[in-house]
Design a protein around this nucleic acid. Structure first.
Lengths: 396, 396
DNA sequence: AAACTTTCTTCATTTGATGGACAAAGCCGG
DNA sequence: CCGGCTTTGTCCATCAAATGAAGAAAGTTT
């Protein structure tokens, strides 16, 4: 059992650690090109990092026409844990200090079982991943939950789809259990961080990350930093109105986006289409499985079912309506689409794009990529690792 | 003619200048309470500021039981210019370094006359205010225009309501003309800065500032900083859709907020109500003036005209619909309502509030004040002065 | 092997910032 | 009016941070 992980002593060391995390093993000179420090100072700080063990030598680099440089890297012993608790599933992954995934586990879960049962399950899964990746000790964990979080305390607040979680001290409990620093955040924020770290949003400073799953949420990154809002509920776009006096929503209002699209709405509409006989394809699948999910709609669409295709197109259109508004408002440099429903395929993305480009202002959409996330299911766990590594790689 | 204004030599001096700007004359010790500097260092930096003339002695403060302190203040000779060009009017004001308004002029203007004609008029007005406030030289100017701006260059881009302005080098031209540093920004951003500086948003770090005028826009402040978006069009909420397949909008789309509310829509609806005979009150005013404006609607509502009241209520409701979405998305700590249409009175605000509180998530609205701006017509010019003073009070 | 490059280390020096000592200036009670 | 107390302003020795230059170490090229 190791004692608590060493921490950088100052902002320079923190900066260097993050560079080594993002760029991999580097020579001192290469690092010097990234930071505004004299070579002496740089060498000194690296010496300190070597002393604390946070950084280790990593052999010699190829010569560039002179003396070969001694590379350094973050100690490969570091292990971060990323946990992405969704409404219906959980992902757990271990990473090294460079945020490469060393082990990944996923399994179904019902967040409505409440925090105690869920954490029992999560901890079991953590145990499994720990075993397969032969990890003893975590140096930090980033945990995502499908609802608003008071970030500084790491406590969910008034989560609509997570009854029983309100006020549950997730951060404290997990920190105790895992014996390492823990940060808790909304799952969409972690997804955004993941795509920023290792996905499609690298080097973009202002972007939106829309997660289409059981619910619909949006991570907001401003100037490279996640914007969480004053109560931690920023990005909760599932209940933005898309149709005045429209369909009744579970939240009590009418016309919310989630009343029209998202995992729940899609299952509802698909089931209705199957029952009404409008889609024999879906009816067959309903017969077979007892209930329909987004995967059934996806498969039906793939099989050419017109109703399923129409459901996807309309869902994309409704989503596009909301995103169009957000794009006009926020003027991002990129919109990332992720979450379970991206399994619905290209039709969904095309439909979203069409609606956004049609409806937002030309200046805001002129050079606006709307793309699928690169990391898929891993975005959340990578984001979790990124979140806690930012924390661990900051002065104590 | 003075040479160019001195600038602070480092961030400490910049910090001190901004403190003196916001807090007024202060003693060294009082300043020391606000910054994390030793008394020696603080005294040293103030000495430097005194030497450059940016700061001057300001007499003795009352004793607090010991030696009386020597106050200092920013040199009262400094003069900032704030210019707020709206679609139909322009405001010009001179301030001192503490951003108190020393002179204010306003007059009607048609931004569609194009940049050359408009600037002729603006410069004439600047001349007038310069005369009445007996100012010779400006130390900086902040200029707001009613459309998106590429902020670093100070150039309007693709402004829908400002034909002929696209690419016009406002910053460069005005800097030349005025002989001082100039920054150009969207008018709603200046309004937000104004309310943050001297209005209702003091000490709020995340807020929205919705401007209801001829058009409708929204200033976004994140972490105390204005968010302008990647192309400078952030906050352009006038063309967010409030009604799918709704009224045709001038922008080419359908169902935009500005098709339902804003100065133009209101005048249109009021005229229609007058012509159709639904409102004799409005008909009378139309007869008298030849055309109707927001003021007529306001007056009619004040006189108890039911149709006018209804127009206001519906406008507020439409606006509230959009704001509700933004609140869910952005989770601000405050929403400020400003702009010419706030003259419509309390009914408008009440209507907006009702809609937002009804439609946004409880967590986001739970403790969310929605209030009128404090500065009214002056918000823009104060924001302009604030913008440029931030620039002047930053290291060269 | 000589000349040139690139990398790493050392060190004297400069610059930045601190905190303590003390003087100046005010209050208050006797 | 005088001595004790408090607050403010200034001075200065000292500590800490960062730098740039010099030179040693380790390669490559000709």
């Amino acid at each position: 059992m190791r004692s608590t992980t060493a921490r950088p002593a100052n902002i320079h060391q923190a900066r260097l650690l993050r560079l080594l995390r993002d760029l991999g093993p580097q020579s001192r000179v290469a690092l010097g090109d990234q930071v505004e420090l004299s070579r002496s100072k740089l060498a000194f700080e690296i010496e300190r990092l070597l002393e604390t063990g946070l950084v280790v030598p990593d052999g010699l680099a190829a010569s560039r026409g002179g003396r070969r440089s001694h590379n350094v890297r973050i100690t490969p012993a570091l292990r971060f844990l990323g946990v992405d608790i969704g409404a219906t599933s959980v992902d757990v992954a271990v990473t090294n200090a460079e945020l490469d995934i060393l082990g990944h586990q996923t399994e179904p879960l019902d967040v409505r079982d409440g925090p105690v049962a869920v954490f029992e399950q999560v901890l079991a899964l953590v145990g499994k991943v720990r075993e397969t990746a032969s990890v003893e000790h975590f140096d930090g964990a980033g945990i995502g939950v499908p609802g608003p979080v008071r970030f500084p305390e790491g406590v969910p607040v008034a989560p609509p789809i997570m009854p029983g979680w309100n006020g549950f001290p997730v951060r404290e409990a997990m920190s105790q259990e895992l014996g390492c620093p823990v940060l808790v955040d909304n799952d969409v924020n972690l997804m955004a961080l993941g795509e920023q770290q290792a996905g499609v949003a690298r080097s973009v400073r202002d972007f939106l990350c829309v997660k289409l799953g059981t619910g619909i949420g949006c991570g907001i990154v401003v100037g490279g930093e996640v914007h969480r809002g004053v109560t931690g509920s920023a990005g909760d776009i599932g209940h933005i109105q898309v149709e005045p006096d429209g369909l009744r929503c579970a939240c009590g209002n009418a016309g919310c986006l989630e009343a029209y699209f998202g995992g729940n709405a899609l299952a509802r509409d698909a089931t209705a289409a199957a029952r009404s006989g409008r889609s024999t394809e879906l009816a067959g699948r309903l017969e077979a499985a007892g209930r329909l999910t987004a995967e059934d709609v996806s498969a039906a669409a793939g099989a050419g079912d017109a109703v399923a295709l129409e459901l996807i197109r309309w869902g994309g259109k409704r989503t596009g309506q909301v995103i169009a508004g957000l794009v006009s408002f926020f003027n991002p440099g990129l919109v990332v689409i992720g979450g379970g429903l991206t399994g619905l395929g290209h039709n969904l993305l095309a439909s979203i794009r069409t609606q956004v480009y049609r409806q937002s202002l030309p200046l805001a959409t002129g050079n606006l990529p709307i793309v699928l996330g690169e990391l898929g299911q891993c975005a959340g766990v990578v984001g979790g690792a990124r979140l806690i590594s930012d924390h661990v790689f900051s002065p104590a």
